[in-house]
């Protein structure tokens, strides 16, 4: 099969998003921030509307609103608001507000589905550079702070006794999450970004024996999901973003089922 230029770009874009969302997704799972990821991603639609209205780059617009949302959620949580309710209100409000805001823009300028579900097959080389830079920034942040992030995740008190400031580490994760959202918007879309964070990492948990192992495996499984999803999309003409997430879900199901069968076999030995 000849790899068309647009397929190559799609593969690269997906691979870079998976490289960032794998390790970040592990932290999202370990710290139980799944809904937090959703709220941040949904806020991105509002960012799209604002960026188009004020004619600034969509990447910057989504980055700004995602960051704002993430900081807002962290602040409210820090003040003792019930996380579940706060996120439920904020996530859906941000999405609804974004959709309303987009409707004020001339229809020719916005293809809403592209932002809701991604449009990885039309990613241009220049967009690819932005996605790549975002993914590298996230990976760099996580690698740089890995040890303190991990310690703060295991126990904030232990971290404090080692001179680590858990609030700073939370901020690092918040920033990484906002960048990931902005970089992934074109690839899987606002509604499915959280899936790219959680599903590969959750599948990796089944086999991982160490935090690092889980992060690396999450990236590998993410890559498989991207390739399989794009293949599916190409052969069956299905939407690319949802196809990637479907592939990831299949990998997760396979992992969990496989681990269950393996354990049962070992017990019979």
């Amino acid at each position: 099969m000849i790899l068309d230029d647009f397929m190559l770009r799609a593969l690269l874009a997906g691979a870079m998003v998976a490289a960032a969302s794998g390790p970040l997704g592990c932290f999202v799972i370990w710290r139980r921030m799944a809904y937090f990821g959703d709220a941040t991603a949904h806020a991105a639609i509002l960012g799209v509307a604002l960026a188009l209205a004020f004619s600034i780059s969509v990447f910057l617009g989504t980055l700004a609103t995602a960051l704002l949302m993430a900081v807002l959620v962290s602040t409210l949580a820090g003040r003792g608001w019930a996380m579940d309710t706060t996120l439920g209100v904020l996530a859906h409000s941000a999405l609804a507000l974004g959709l309303v805001a987009v409707s004020f823009l001339p229809a020719v300028r916005v293809d809403l589905t592209a932002y809701l579900f991604g449009d990885i097959l039309t990613v241009s080389w220049s967009e690819l550079w932005v996605i790549g830079a975002g993914a590298m920034a996230v990976l760099g942040l996580l690698l740089w702070r890995w040890r303190s992030l991990l310690t703060a995740t295991i126990s904030e008190e232990l971290a404090q006794s080692n001179g680590i400031r858990p609030d700073l580490e939370r901020l690092v994760l918040t920033l990484a999450l906002a960048i990931t959202v902005a970089a992934s918007l074109r690839v899987v879309g606002a509604l499915l970004i959280a899936a790219m964070l959680i599903v590969p990492a959750a599948a990796a948990r089944v086999y991982a024996r160490s935090p690092e192992g889980m992060a690396i495996l999450a990236v590998l499984l993410g890559w498989i999901a991207v390739s399989a999803g794009l293949g599916l999309s190409l052969s069956l003409d299905t939407p690319a973003g949802p196809s990637i997430v479907t592939a990831a879900a299949a990998i997760f199901t396979g992992s969990v089922a496989g681990a269950g069968i393996w354990q049962r076999l070992r017990r019979h030995d």
Binding site: W30, R32, I154, E157, L158, S161, N162, P211, G213
Partner: peptide, 26 residues
Amino acid sequence: RIGYVPQRLHLDPSLPLTVARFVKLG
């Protein structure tokens, strides 16, 4: 040099961590 033993430590089961890895944390 402080060695701190916290009151409780709730480890999320989604985080794979061996005892050896935990002991040499940091």
